[in-house]
Amino acid sequence: MTRTHRLFQLMQTLRRLPAPVTAAALVNETGVSLRTIYRDIDALRGLGAVIDGEAGFGYTLIEDAALPPLAFSDDELEALVLGLREVSVIGDPALAEAAQTALSKLKSRLPARQTHRLQHAVLDARRFVRPPEPRIDVKKLRAATWEEVTVSFHYEDAKGALSQRRADPLSIVFMQNAHMLMAWCHLRSDFRAFRLDRMSELEVTGVSFRPKRVPLLRDFMDLMRRQAEERAKDRQTFD
């Protein structure tokens, strides 16, 4: 780990953990020695970060001079908080952690009044039953989707039948209380939605399908919209 990366990680930890953050807690989070923590705190202060506290009492990040305050309306701030809190409860582990980090970054850059508003936002997102845990590395799948690279995986359907799939990943969508991969399935030669908690042994093939992702996804979404409209008409017919 480079010194720059270590200092960045230390700043993120000071933003994220409840203040005051003890040196021991920083050691546990960063994996470096106590002496290195003391040295890095001094280095951050030298770079302009206002960090209150000292060894034995814990540290509180008061202000990051490198980051100017952000300007949001109260409604914009509520929308951001609600969205990030929703991600923290429905996102895969990497995204859930990223949402918490993003909230801590917001807190460090807001004016004092809005920092209070962020901490005590009226809107919240809670789920007492979390969505099923994915059985694959979702970060790896997201990267393959962005890069427009075909993936392969094992899939277990609702009846327990297993199959080997090869698909072009188009998007990851949370719907029907589960995370779904929207994809073009090579086995079926058609669009398919795969539940992430039923996927396993994900492999990135290295075969590119660029630049087809955006038009394929648009076609898939149009198909789903038409199907939803048809189901709605059928329900109205029998009501």
Rank of each mutant, 00 (worst) to 15 (best):
M182N: 14
V204F: 07
H186T: 04
M175L: 10
D190G: 12
S208V: 02
K159W: 12
E201K: 05
C185F: 08
S200V: 08
D197N: 05
R198C: 04
A193E: 15
Q164N: 12
M175V: 08
R192S: 06
A183S: 08
P169G: 04
C185W: 05
R195D: 01
P169M: 10
A161P: 03
D219M: 08
D197K: 00
A167V: 14
M221C: 12
A178W: 06
M175H: 08
C185D: 15
W184L: 07
K212E: 14
L223C: 11
M182Q: 09
F220R: 12
C185V: 07
P211S: 09
D157S: 05
V204N: 05
Q176H: 14
F194Q: 02
F191E: 02
V214H: 08
E156N: 10
L216P: 01
L170C: 04
A158I: 11
L223M: 13
S208Y: 04
R195S: 00
F220M: 15
A193P: 03
M182A: 13
F194I: 01
S152E: 15
L217D: 10
T205F: 08
M221K: 09
L181N: 10
L170P: 10
M180W: 13
P211M: 03
V207D: 11
Y155L: 04
D222I: 12
L170S: 00
L196K: 02
S152Q: 05
A178L: 06
D222F: 06
D168N: 12
D168M: 13
A183Q: 02
L187I: 14
A161W: 15
A158Q: 08
L162V: 05
L202Y: 13
F194P: 04
F194R: 00
F194K: 01
V173R: 08
S200H: 10
A183T: 05
S163L: 14
R166C: 15
H179T: 06
E203K: 11
S200F: 14
F209A: 14
C185N: 09
N177Y: 08
L216Y: 09
F194D: 03
L181V: 09
H186L: 04
D222R: 11
R188V: 07
Q164R: 14
A183L: 02
R195E: 06
S152W: 08
V151L: 08
P211W: 11
A183V: 02
K212L: 14
T205L: 12
L170H: 07
N177D: 13
F194M: 01
S200M: 06
L181M: 15
V207W: 03
L181I: 03
H154T: 11
R192F: 10
V149I: 15
Q176R: 12
D190Y: 01
S163T: 14
F191H: 06
R166T: 13
F153K: 01
P211C: 05
V173M: 03
K212P: 00
L223Y: 08
C185Q: 04
M180N: 13
R192L: 04
H179K: 03
M180R: 09
L187A: 02
P215E: 01
D190L: 03
L216Q: 13
V207H: 07
M175N: 06
L170G: 00
D197S: 02
V214R: 15
V151M: 10
G160P: 03
V207M: 07
A158V: 07
E156W: 00
L223E: 13
L223R: 11
E203M: 15
R166K: 15
D219R: 09
F153Y: 06
L196G: 03
F174W: 11
R188P: 04
R210C: 06
V207L: 11
